[in-house]
Write a protein that binds this DNA or RNA. Structure first.
Length: 476
RNA sequence: GCCCCCGUAGCUCAGCUGGUCAGAGCAAGCGGCUUUUAACCGCAAGGUCGUCGGUUCGAAUCCGACCGGGGGCACCA
């Protein structure tokens, strides 16, 4: 805390200036001023008056005049303060502000001799005193820990951080509009759940005092959303946080934003066609211009073929763990003999296929062992109708033709119980309420989950999920 | 949980083969300057060198533990 700033605060109060006024109506974005007058000639003056507001980011004093940089959400604009325009008291008070103070300025637009669009201040007001110094005005804030723990400083100091989170917001808004335009209903399902399900992951647990019972933070909204399809809502989606009790990594945050949508009378092919329309639409909406080509259609590669192509190992010709380990060994790939066949398949995909998929690619038709909620493949025994979508070397979506046969779903849960008994702490708990809902009759349905954080990573060209989460999980 | 790297002033960084090594720029303070934009010029000021312990005549510098961060592995759809 700066004593100098404290003293200035008290001096302002002593001078009858409210350092924390209540409002400042009529502000326009600095970008709007730029849009109207960006093409002025150097040195050209106008009578156009504007009211802008923002944080004082830099000051260049010249005795009887000074240039101030004011930053708002839309950008930065230069303000010129002149003693002969503002008068002695107002001028002196303005140039003695601290960097980081929030101010509102009325001024007329002109372009300086050096070609900088500028507002000549005719009046101004302190909007909030800043009692702590801002990060370095030129170098910004580089320390990653401070950037994550004190994101407000990152947003103040680093233009690209502010732009990134604006992009994230616009991404979600574009998705919402796209789904609403296709008659999907946005719904909200429980985050606190008596039983977790819908993904293979360990949950966070918490306790409800009045009910005196354990509750789980959801690992996915999937099972509730499908109950809404049973209920006849036909097309539903939810955008919200999922929570998974797992390690942190550049691609994993323990709470993350998931989009799930479910569509009656559709299968996984329909969902794939929708995803490859949605993502390019969103990329266009946010002005994506990076390396990834999101143009539809995206390749669809069977999981077996993808693994075969990358490793030479045919996972479907080696349908038990021992045979698969041996087949991989022939190709010089060492696999852990302790794992199940399904886990080994997953490992081959994760290590040998996923990292190489840069442009969006559907990997389709997964083993049933990895997919307890997906419907059996209509022609391939032992497989389910499921795809995962990869881009930028990581998975960002997962979808299937939903299993709607309650008896088969019950068998899948019982299989999960056996996994749990065998020590798999990510096995699905048996959800009788969900099976009962399926017994009511669920139409054929396609469903998908899209990792919003990862999609934003792709659109923003960031390689760490922490960069695209405002307040990422950190130790203590 | 394991391995590697990092932690110096409010911010960005230098110093790190142990001996004026407590430094620079920005910010903040004082003075000057009415078209600058990392404004400029002058003066003055600012730090338990992450924490604790060890080795040594002497540690920001070497060693250990711990705390925090990053990367990788494990884990993870």
């Amino acid at each position: 805390m700066s004593d100098d700033r404290r003293e200035k605060l008290e001096q302002l109060r002593a001078d009858g200036v409210d350092p924390f006024p209540h409002a400042f109506p009529g502000v326009v974005a600095s970008a709007a001023v730029r849009a109207e007058h960006g093409d002025l000639a150097d040195g050209e003056e106008t009578d156009a008056a504007y009211r802008v507001a923002g944080r004082l980011a830099a000051r260049r004093g010249h005795g009887g005049a000074a240039f101030l940089d004011v930053v708002d959400r839309s950008g930065r604009i230069q303000v010129q303060a002149r003693r002969d325009v503002l008068g002695e008291e107002s001028f002196e008070r303005l140039v003695s502000l601290d960097l980081g103070d929030l101010i509102g300025v009325d001024g007329t637009a002109f372009k300086s001799r050096r070609g900088e669009l500028t507002l000549r201040a005719t009046g101004w007001e302190l909007l909030a005193k800043s009692l702590r110094p801002p990060p370095d005005k030129h170098h910004g804030l580089a320390d990653t820990e401070t950037r994550y723990r004190r994101r407000e400083l990152d947003l103040i100091a680093n233009d690209d951080a502010r732009e990134l989170f604006i992009l994230r917001s616009r991404t979600i808004a574009a998705i919402r509009r796209w789904l609403e335009a296709r008659d999907f209903l946005e719904v909200e399902t429980p985050i606190l759940q008596p039983l977790y399900g819908g993904a293979l992951a360990r949950p966070f647990t918490t306790h409800h005092n009045a009910l005196d019972r354990e509750l789980y933070l959801r690992i996915a909204p999937e099972l509730y959303l499908k109950r809404l399809i049973v209920g006849g809502l036909e097309r539903v989606f939810e955008i919200g946080k999922d929570f998974r009790n797992e390690g942190l990594s550049p691609k994993h945050n323990p709470e993350f934003t998931m989009l799930e949508w479910y569509e009656a009378y559709a299968d996984y092919r329909d969902i794939a066609a929708e995803l490859e329309q949605l993502v390019p639409h969103v990329a266009d909406a946010v002005g994506y211009s990076g390396e990834i080509d999101f143009t539809a259609p995206w390749p669809r590669i069977a999981l077996r073929d993808a693994v075969l192509e990358r490793t030479g190992v045919d996972v479907l010709a080696n349908r038990d763990a021992a045979a698969l380990v041996a087949a991989a060994a022939e190709r010089g790939i060492e696999l852990d003999g302790e794992e199940t066949w399904a886990q080994l398949v997953d490992e081959l995909v994760s290590k040998h296929v996923e990292p190489r998929l840069v442009n969006p690619t559907f990997i389709v038709d997964y083993p049933v062992e990895l997919s307890p909620f997906a419907k059996a493949h209509r022609t391939e025994p032992g497989l389910v109708e499921r795809f995962e979508c990869f881009a930028g070397g990581m998975e960002f979506a997962n979808a299937f033709t939903e299993l709607n046969d309650p008896d088969e779903q019950r068998r899948r849960f019982e299989e999960q119980r056996r996994h749990e008994a065998a020590g798999d702490d990510e096995a699905q708990p048996y959800d009788e309420d969900f099976v009962r809902a399926l017994e009511q009759g669920m139409p054929p349905t396609g469903g998908i989950g899209v990792g919003i954080d990862r999609l934003v990573m792709l659109l923003a060209g960031r390689s760490a999920i922490r960069e695209v989460v405002l307040f990422p999980a950190l130790r203590s």
